[in-house]
Computed example of a mutant assay.
Amino acid sequence: MVIAPIKENISTDYSLENWLQSPPEGTEWVNGELLEKDGVTLKHSRVQAKLATYWRNYKEASGQGGEVYTEAPCRTNQQGRRPDVAYLTPELMQQFGEPAVLPQSFPLIAEIISPTDLAEDIIAKSQEYLQSGSEEVWLVFPENRWIIVVNKNQRLIFISGEIVKTQAVLPGFNVAVDELIG
């Protein structure tokens, strides 16, 4: 889920360490506060489910293995996050197993952007993921039918009528922007 600009603070006495041990459902730990994620619409949920299904089906059909998650908690260098969709490689699954919270960002992450999200926050979040172990972040804009794929070396924009492709993780995956968002 995406965090909307106005977030409900549900506790200021909750530490990152507490969140990492047992993250309350539907929360992220951001800037020293436990925040409830909000801003989810039916369209957001539909796109999230479709992308998770596409990534899962592709990793199975291609034999690449790994696992696809939705709303799975991970730790970045600064925060406790729950990306909308995330892919964990077989190598990292073997290294970490399945802890309560992944101790780094997932290698491939997608965030579904809501109309109330602020551009500065979205860009900062994608950079936070990349600085914490992600190799590729998808920013999916359902209302505009845009998908921005970000990695450490490039930023690519895919629009309606185009095919979006993974760049660094889950090699060979592609889907029409209109099929995913439409």
Rank of each mutant, 00 (worst) to 15 (best):
A72W: 10
K50Q: 06
T76V: 11
A49M: 05
Q94T: 12
S11I: 04
I163A: 14
D38W: 14
Q95A: 14
E33F: 07
G80K: 12
P90Q: 03
I10T: 02
D84R: 10
S62D: 01
V101Q: 06
K50G: 09
A176S: 11
A110C: 02
P107V: 13
I123H: 09
Q79T: 13
G80L: 03
E98A: 12
A49Y: 07
P115R: 11
D121N: 14
L20D: 05
A72L: 02
P5D: 14
T116H: 03
Q64W: 08
K125V: 07
G65T: 13
W55S: 00
I157R: 15
K125S: 06
G97P: 04
G32N: 02
L170G: 00
L88D: 02
Q64V: 03
D38L: 12
K165C: 12
V150M: 13
Y129E: 06
L170V: 11
E67P: 14
A52Y: 03
E128N: 07
S22G: 13
R75M: 07
P115K: 09
K125I: 05
N153F: 03
L35Y: 05
I181D: 05
A52W: 04
I181R: 08
I10Q: 05
L139I: 02
I157M: 15
E179S: 10
L170A: 02
P90W: 12
D178R: 05
R145A: 13
T53K: 12
T12N: 05
D117C: 09
E91M: 10
P73R: 14
Y54Q: 09
Q48A: 15
A72I: 02
Y58S: 00
Q131S: 11
N31H: 06
K59S: 15
L35D: 02
Q127T: 13
V150L: 12
G32M: 09
T166C: 10
P99S: 10
S11E: 03
Q79M: 14
G161K: 07
K37V: 05
L16K: 01
